[in-house]
């Protein structure tokens, strides 16, 4: 039998060498993380510096203009708000209902499998493809036009997988004994779902909705694809009117612009004066999405800490 003859000194030398590699790797890991974080800081600080001069109350109150110094994001933020209302109104009920169906009702057979595979795949479809769907289907086939409702519906479909997955995960975390407890006192399936499953999974669902919405706010490609105009110097009709029935849904049909489109428009102009506007709009956009993401992360963190079934 051969022996691997090594003196303690040799062994120690080997270990020391291997440990130096450990230390070197830790340094590498910290550097890699640092590159990620530094990029983010550079991105935010660069935009903040470029756009600082434009960040004023007037910037929010003015329409886009041919003169960079007078241009603002009024139509863009109003458009974003309205589109988001449509998106949320469609995606949240649909996504939550679909999640409930798949977790609580769906029988285990091929239809359910198909839906599941389908949702996972949809989550990986590039957003611009949703834009093509909307262009062909909503704009032309359904005749909804290049309107707020088209944009809202498009983004709703885009974030649907996010809401469904979050709903399912939240529901799955509820232990079976809760359901059995409800059934044991005579509740029907729907009563169990309505009174127990939905309320208990609410924080998890909310997390998913917020992440989905923050993604929708920043989406540019699908909205460009449906042919949204980039120069909108007017507001959609107000949802509240002076005449009976005091509510109007005309705004759904109105042409619009949104924050990321406005930013894209300003970024792609050769005139550097507009880049400051783009930076200012970008700062606001990043601030909004970061706040939403941070909120979602915090919610999830709290959830993990507080709920112990």
């Amino acid at each position: 039998m051969t022996y691997v003859a090594q003196t303690p000194e040799q062994i120690r030398g080997l270990i020391a060498k291997a440990k130096r590699r450990d230390v070197a790797f830790v340094a590498l890991g910290v550097v890699a993380l640092g590159i990620g974080f530094a990029t983010f800081v550079a991105l935010f600080v660069d935009m903040l510096i470029d756009g600082w001069a434009r960040l004023s109350p007037e910037f929010f109150a003015q329409f886009p203009s041919r003169r960079a110094g007078q241009a603002g994001i009024l139509s863009a933020w109003v458009g974003t708000t309205l589109v988001m209302i449509v998106t949320a109104a469609v995606a949240v009920p649909l996504g939550v209902a679909a999640g409930i169906y798949l977790e609580e009702y769906a029988p285990k057979h091929w239809v359910t499998d198909l839906i599941e595979i389908n949702i996972t795949n949809l989550a990986g479809v590039p957003s611009i493809v949703y834009g093509l769907l909307a262009l062909g289907l909503f704009v032309y086939a359904f005749g909804l036009g290049q309107s707020i409702r088209t944009a809202g519906l498009t983004l709703a479909l885009l974030i649907l997988p996010v809401v469904i997955v979050a709903t399912r995960e939240a529901i799955r975390a509820i232990p079976g004994v809760i359901r059995e407890g409800a059934y044991a006192v005579g509740a029907t399936k729907w009563q169990t779902v309505r009174d127990h499953i939905v309320p208990y999974s609410m924080p998890g669902i909310l997390t998913g909705v917020i992440i989905g919405m923050s993604r929708a706010i920043g989406e540019t490609a699908p909205i460009i694809t449906i042919g949204a105009l980039t120069f909108i110097a007017f507001l959609p009709p107000a949802p509240v009117t002076g005449d009976f029935p005091f509510l109007s849904f005309e705004w759904l049909k109105a042409p619009f612009t949104v924050m990321p489109i406005q930013m894209f428009n300003w970024t792609s102009r050769p005139d550097e004066a507009f880049h400051a506007n783009a930076a200012a709009a970008g700062t606001i956009l990043v601030f909004m999405t970061l706040t939403m993401n941070a909120l979602a992360i915090w919610l999830r963190y709290r959830l993990r800490k507080h709920i112990k079934w």
């Binding site: 990620g36 983010f40 550079a42 923050s214 540019t220 490609a221 894209f264 939403m292 993401n293």
Partner: peptide, 24 residues
């Protein structure tokens, strides 16, 4: 600490990354 910050990084709208690529 690192994981949520990384997540935030992926939440930045791509148009903002575009601006950063072109002008920074």
């Amino acid at each position: 600490i690192a994981k949520p910050i990384l997540e935030l990084l992926s939440g930045v709208p791509t148009i903002v990354y575009g601006y950063f690529a072109l002008l920074f």
